[in-house]
């Protein structure tokens, strides 16, 4: 599977990952090479196989709905790059 430049730009957009010109060129080649190595999976007949999720046979894990104290707001805001009036501050979302 060869990736073209347009696909790389589209995937970067989906991931909200800014890439410079050199990175776009590099990933176009590198990701194509890596994907080629994945073609080996086409050799495997998986017609009757269900997909795995993870390795332990756990499903729908429940616990008691007990209330407990949350972290203080000040602790959580300590790492915030920008805050205002005890809120996280972000750039405009709507134009």
């Amino acid at each position: 599977m060869k990736l073209d430049r347009k696909q790389v730009e589209h995937v970067a957009w989906l991931a909200r990952l800014g890439l410079d010109e050199a990175e776009i060129e590099k990933f176009t080649v590198e990701l194509s090479n890596i994907l080629e190595n994945f073609e080996i999976l086409n050799q495997v007949d998986t017609a009757d196989v269900s997909p795995a999720t993870h390795a332990v046979p756990l499903q729908s894990v429940f616990r008691e709905d007990q209330s407990s104290p949350s972290y203080p707001q000040s602790d959580i805001l300590t790492n915030a790059p920008r805050e205002e009036e005890n809120c996280f501050k972000v750039k405009p979302v709507l134009e």
């Binding site: 991931a15 990952l17 800014g18 990175e23 990701l31 979302v93």
Partner: peptide, 29 residues
């Protein structure tokens, strides 16, 4: 950056190194 989306893209562009970007690209694809 002038918008939320641009700030996100640039934060991730400058905050992540090459291998992390490679795997995010691979996984997103």
């Amino acid at each position: 950056a002038s918008s939320m989306i641009e700030a996100t893209e640039k934060t991730r562009q400058f905050g992540f190194g090459a291998e992390v970007k490679r795997r995010i690209m691979l996984g997103t694809y």
